[in-house]
Design a protein around this nucleic acid. Sequence first.
DNA 1: GATCCGTGGTACAACGTTGTAAAGAGTGTC
DNA 2: GACACTCTTTACAACGTTGTACCACGGATC
Lengths: 347, 347
Amino acid sequence: MAATMHDVARLAGVSIKTVSNVVNGYPHVRAETRAKVLAAIDQLDYQVNVAARNLRTGRTGIIALAVPELSLPYFAELADRVIEAAREHGLTVLIEQHGGDRERELEVLSGARRHLTDGLIFSPLALGAGDERLLEVDFPMVLLGERIFHDGVDHVTMHNVEAARAATAYLLELGRRRIAVVGVHAGEVVGSAGLRLEGYRLALADAGIPFDPSLLGEAGLWHRATGAEAMAALLESDAGPDAVFGFNDALALGAMHELQVRGVRIPEDIAVLGFDAIDDAMYSFPALSTVDPGKEQIATTAVQMLVDQAANRQSYRNGVHRPTRVYADFRILVRGSTEPATEASRR
Amino acid sequence: MAATMHDVARLAGVSIKTVSNVVNGYPHVRAETRAKVLAAIDQLDYQVNVAARNLRTGRTGIIALAVPELSLPYFAELADRVIEAAREHGLTVLIEQHGGDRERELEVLSGARRHLTDGLIFSPLALGAGDERLLEVDFPMVLLGERIFHDGVDHVTMHNVEAARAATAYLLELGRRRIAVVGVHAGEVVGSAGLRLEGYRLALADAGIPFDPSLLGEAGLWHRATGAEAMAALLESDAGPDAVFGFNDALALGAMHELQVRGVRIPEDIAVLGFDAIDDAMYSFPALSTVDPGKEQIATTAVQMLVDQAANRQSYRNGVHRPTRVYADFRILVRGSTEPATEASRR
DNA sequence: GATCCGTGGTACAACGTTGTAAAGAGTGTC
DNA sequence: GACACTCTTTACAACGTTGTACCACGGATC
């Protein structure tokens, strides 16, 4: 049905390889010949068959991005940035959702899709300590997140500990002393929850404030709903917080919702701070102060690393190139949920 | 590097075609032979090369989903559902963002990617009346949205007019009489803005209430920011609304934010109603009442239609199968932003 | 005993592209 | 005029799979 290089070649009166040369921008083609070929391509509305090219070259121009789920704004925004960054490199993005399900994460790693893609950007949720060996795959991969660390793979992550420490320090500077956290995973050491909690504890220690376990709000899933539930539990205990640090924005927004339902004033009675800097955070009321973990940088860096891996496959295989770990820059975005606002700054 | 069918065949001591038969579940293979092949596959950790299979069969197992941008929660949630629906059919989803840019939308339609995918689910934003011919492509495609209608293609859309009419009628039932709308595109007839405005007008007419242009809030982009701006403009005019109907949830949430900044009580002074039923809407304060346009149904129907098209390519080509248009079911989700709430219902 | 059929297996030729090697056509140098 | 060089173009063989055609075997049918 669709035209092939053969058809173009016949119409232009040249060999099929010459058509290929034109299509791929090979320089040593006479201008006249090139024009003939281009005219034929135009006339037949020819498009290269990517599958055939792929079979021949082993490249597809597709990279896979595996995330828990796109319904979570953080991952939706990350995916958005990854798609745009990939586009800059002429790549398209195939998205896989694993929903934090271990089986599905393993499927992503060893899956049949690997022939379809030039590489994988993988943000695991279920995999963790002890699974490092599973990451030693023989295709280009960049790891995201903080569930698992392994020197053998390129990794883009955030300054979780430092950012959480700075965030907590910021709340302390505001004079808050009873800072609750929402999103704790009991017993977790590595992973966003463990690392951010570590940062929180360090900041308290820096300020000489005792750590009080009654201020810890557990939340397995980091959704708005669980944030609201954890907040409710904190309010119904006798913890008496004057600030809440949500380990992500969804948790913080859920907590904020719960506070407002109960008539607690934000930030006067309780200041609220989030993490992730999702778009929503800007439009809550009051707007949610949050930690921007460098989403944009994470996306562009990950894509760049993947492209580099693909380009220098040899060096990566034989160990000339050592895998690197990049920590994105963070900053605290101050908004109305923490600073007693003037009419203007409250937005 | 990776094992091929040749390797498996050699190890199992059979022909390469027999391996292919085993892999593809061809029934006439002796159990003993099948076992040998499976053992070899296992031993070599063999995976079919999808590119080669694709070249041979013309199928890739990938479908493309083209949306404006994933940062918009509606599309992120839609993509989530599409990915899951595709998974049920053994398909993977490649996502393209066109950002509502005409050039990029055209690229999607005529793009080089078409060889990589078995079909396209396309939600245009820039294309519209006059571009119908562009939709007559020779690969499986399902159209989403309400920017453009064409009898020649399968289409999944919403009851925009009816849903907006019902939504407006609901606000009227609550006793609201000065219902402002946010998200108007002046002069648009087709498209979400045009159709939803039409529903609004019909409901007013049904109730015998005069249409007042001063209650129309324009907003080109349907983001929270523009919703807030439009709301501000309405409040600073002398329109005096007692309800706001946001043409999507982002607009409504933005409007709500603006109202709260100004100390307007929701729903007592002004009721707010959205459209799309994104997850966020559940966790604003008060929770946003909204119209659920049947997102889930849209996603599953679109994928199903695409699969059917691919399976019955012939019938579609020669016109035996006629393209259909499906309208998803909608319903109004009543929450605290419209109903003067009890402590319980307010959540 | 010839014919037909179902089963289990194989050989070969595609699918549409690109890398390799090499041939022809000029151009310049000695 | 021979040689080396560059530019331009080509033929051919892959890449890894599957569809088609076909062969061989045994059992059933006439």
